[in-house]
């Protein structure tokens, strides 16, 4: 599929593709918004600016996915970002959770970035060419987020004492939601069949576990037992009240006048 026009001619293909694009866009937008909330609050000013810079990257990636959706006949990117209901959001619930502790934010970001890296890799040869091209570029940028979050994750663990304690608490909290980031939603089977994503979710999950176990060892953390099934499945539009609050804040200005020109 070279273009949006071609994709639109195959209804089953289009349905699966659109659903995946919403997952990708919503993951990046939601986490990007949470990152931006660190502005002025990070433990040091360098981390403060770094989180904001990462936030802008993530939102930029979301814009890319929303534009692909728009080309496929969906509404314009601003409306997709700000005016969709909670039940239409496809991000993993982990990413909508409030920032809480800095260790939580770092650990969550790191774990998501590893997943995102594997998912992007499986998209670089997607049958949907515009997505494949974007995935290559985005992955190059995400490499630096991954490096950044990995460095802090390992340092917090190695530092011991309070830092390690906070990191352990963060891991415990993340483990309740972690199951929700794996998987490609209701069209999983079709997405792999159509080669829109070239690796099954289960395979990526196993690779994620391997990479994460290595990072846990580096950070001198004990690998927790397997996780429980999630309470809300974000990929199916189920979300926590924390997303409700996030959307309220994020779309506050947009809702004043949705027709305003920026």
């Amino acid at each position: 599929m070279e273009s949006a026009e071609q994709a639109q001619k195959n209804e089953a293909y289009l349905l699966a593709l659109r659903d995946l694009l919403y997952q990708l866009a919503d993951d990046e937008l939601t986490l990007g918004h949470r990152d931006s909330e660190w502005l002025g609050l990070s433990p040091d000013i360098e981390g403060d600016v770094a989180f904001s810079s990462v936030a802008q990257d993530e939102v930029g990636h979301a814009v890319f996915y929303f534009e692909l959706l728009h080309e496929l006949g969906e509404k314009d990117p601003d409306r997709l970002a700000f005016a969709r209901d909670l039940s239409e959001r496809k991000n993993a619930v982990l990413l909508e959770r409030e920032n809480g502790d800095w260790a939580y934010s770092i650990a969550r970001h790191f774990m998501y970035d590893v997943w995102d890296d594997l998912r992007l890799e499986a998209l670089t040869e997607s049958s949907y060419v515009p997505l494949a091209k974007g995935a290559i570029k985005i992955r190059r940028e995400e490499y630096y987020h991954l490096l950044h979050m990995h460095s802090y994750f390992v340092r917090l663990g190695q530092a011991g004492k309070e830092a390690k304690k906070r990191l352990e608490l963060a891991v415990k909290a993340i483990w309740k939601d972690i199951g929700g980031i794996f998987g490609f939603g209701v069209y999983e089977q079709k997405l792999v069949e159509f080669n829109i994503i070239t690796k099954p979710a289960e395979e990526l999950k196993q690779r994620w576990v391997k990479r994460m176990q290595q990072a846990f060892a580096e950070a001198q953390l004990t690998w927790p037992d397997s996780w429980e099934p999630v309470q809300y499945d974000g990929r199916r539009g189920e979300h926590s009240p924390e997303l409700e609050q996030l959307l309220q804040t994020m779309s506050e200005v947009y809702r004043i006048d949705p027709t305003a020109r920026w």
């Binding site: 040091d44 360098e46 981390g47 600016v49 770094a50 810079s53 990462v54 802008q56 630096y144 490096l147 950044h148 460095s151 802090y152 340092r155």
Partner: peptide, 18 residues
């Protein structure tokens, strides 16, 4: 300010090359 040269390099990238 950074705890190590590698983190200083990463922070410099995010702080000065945005």
């Amino acid at each position: 300010m950074a705890p190590s040269p590698d983190l200083a390099m990463q922070l410099a990238r995010e702080n000065f090359l945005r």
